[in-house]
Amino acid sequence: MLQGHQSWIFNNKPVILSSSAVGGPFEAKGPLAKDFDILHQDTRLGQDSFEKAEKKLIEQACEIAIHKAKIKKEDINFFLCGDLMNQIISSSFAARTLAIPFLGLYGACSSSMEGLSLAALMIDSKAAEYALAATSSHNSASEKQYRYPTEYGAQKPPTAQWTVTGSGAVLLGQRGEGPKVTCATIGRVVDMGLSDPFNMGTAMAPAAVDTIQAHFRDLNRDPSFYDLIATGDLGRVGHRIAGDLLRDHGLEIPPEIFTDCGILIYGDKQPVMAGGSGCACSATTTYGHFFKRMHKGELKRILIVATGALLSPLSYQQKESIPCVAHAVSIEM
């Protein structure tokens, strides 16, 4: 049901029946390693290319989510998936394997919450009995597509971020045990004219701020409603800017509940500059770490604001600035 200008309230409370997180070797060294279902030591996962490895990551994440929910793959009505590769090949190819009716999404790193909000909408409107939403990113595959070859020796600035290798999946159903998706706010595209692909946090921060403000305005809520508000992959640079911007706009989020998946996923000693990024950053942190904390009872109500930078290597070379978007989903235990 529409609430305010750009938010949905899910009155039927779609249930997250199961979730999964798969990661790579770099994620295995991070502080959230114990919250992953599978951690791979080989970034190629035994495949002969990084792109094929990324497809495998989605397949595994989906298999685990389906297995945990103890339902049959054939019972799932729809599969929503997005990734960073050109023509979202990782998602489409994983959908070929899964053979579940498929809708491909592209919202760059906001694909995680884009998928979750649409899946929740399907369940809420009874358009689906079960819906599976997944997303993935692969560090080497993304570097290859967006920047330089992985072994190329170029110095990255301190504002650069490290794309997470991994995949996260959630399975939603009409009824059952688990956290419930209660509402979602769809963001608009915000472009502040930044064009440096090594400084995505700064580019994406205004989009996150816009969506967070819209969320609290539409739902007439206060940040204190949540135990945790996490942005997707703003990193240390973007998260700080977002926090300051919100405060200047009169929306103070207490620092103890305001965090960022890109900061949480890697440790201080890991050479990731400003933090993690990529679709899998918000997906694995939310579907792995945050959901585990919800099941333990440490968190009751969370708001995830996944941020995406909608650039392409071509648009960057043509001197276009970076349009950004953010989608917020509220999950309650």
Partner: peptide, 13 residues
């Protein structure tokens, strides 16, 4: 946009 970029600049490493 100019105002934001100046705002962000002082907060970037």
């Amino acid at each position: 946009q100019q105002k934001y970029q100046a705002y962000a600049k002082i907060r970037e490493p």
